[in-house]
């Protein structure tokens, strides 16, 4: 589904190569973990996969199409979803508004968007009494579930998760991972989790290790 083809990345005005001929093939229906120490290049890889940055050389292919030929904003808007460790909900928007926001961005009519958002929120365990709450009034687990709901709202089939359980307790972390696993295994989502958490890595279908800019499949 998402293929990394010999991607190299060097920061502008810097000599050090952050990514060195990275190759990977992230397929639908599986959870992929990318583990590695800090500074190994995980975030850079995530940024390139998210279309927020472009590789110096090489290509990222979605379903065989290179991102370089795509509108990256549209790519992010429609094809992928990102989940962050710190949730990154918009603080001025309520839970349901946060979920609606990507749909609004895509021009979905308000009522339809809200209907879908409500459904998604309930799907991830946020009951209707909390739909109008602001992120500050939700627990960490709830916030992350709202973030997952938001990522699902556009129907993107690739989910990039950056330490999705890093701010959560075990129970909430497990719940989030369960959601991701189900999304991958039951609906064919391609889930890519960048994490330090070896437990998550161990439960993943495919594990990559990033070390000094080199990505190696280890399991």
């Amino acid at each position: 589904m998402l293929k990394i083809d010999n991607v190299c990345y060097t920061y502008k005005n810097a000599d050090r190569q952050v990514l060195k001929s990275v190759n990977a093939d992230f397929v639908g229906g599986r959870i992929h973990s990318v583990v590695g120490p800090s500074g190994s290049g995980k975030t850079t890889l995530l940024s390139i996969m998210a279309g927020l940055d472009k590789p110096t050389t090489g290509a990222v292919l979605l379903n065989g199409s290179s991102l370089s030929n795509m509108d990256l904003d549209q790519y992010r808007r429609e094809r992928i979803a990102i989940i962050f460790q710190a949730f990154q909900l918009l603080p001025q928007l309520s839970a349901i508004e946060n979920v609606c926001m990507p749909m609004h961005m895509n021009g979905l009519e308000k009522r339809q968007a809200e209907g879908r958002a409500r459904w998604l929120l309930e799907s991830v365990g946020i009951d209707s009494s909390k739909h109008r709450r602001y992120p500050a009034n939700l627990s960490g687990g709830e916030q992350q579930r709202v973030a997952i709901a938001r990522s699902l709202s556009t129907g993107a089939k690739v989910i990039l998760a950056d330490e999705p359980t890093g701010n959560l307790d075990v129970a909430n972390g497990d719940a989030v991972i369960s959601i991701l696993r189900k999304l991958a295994h039951q609906d064919g989502y391609c889930v890519i989790v960048v994490t330090h958490n070896m437990e998550i890595a161990e439960t993943s279908d495919v594990v990559y290790r990033m070390s000094d800019g080199v990505l190696t499949q280890v399991g």
Partner: peptide, 29 residues
């Protein structure tokens, strides 16, 4: 809830392209 809801979730989510997207809605949003 995951087991209970997930099936519905999986079947209900449709690609966004299928929705009626309008510039007007985007503006309103």
């Amino acid at each position: 809830f995951l087991q209970h809801r997930l099936g519905e979730l999986l079947t209900s989510i449709k690609p966004i392209e299928q929705e009626i997207l309008t510039r007007r809605n985007r503006f309103k949003a």
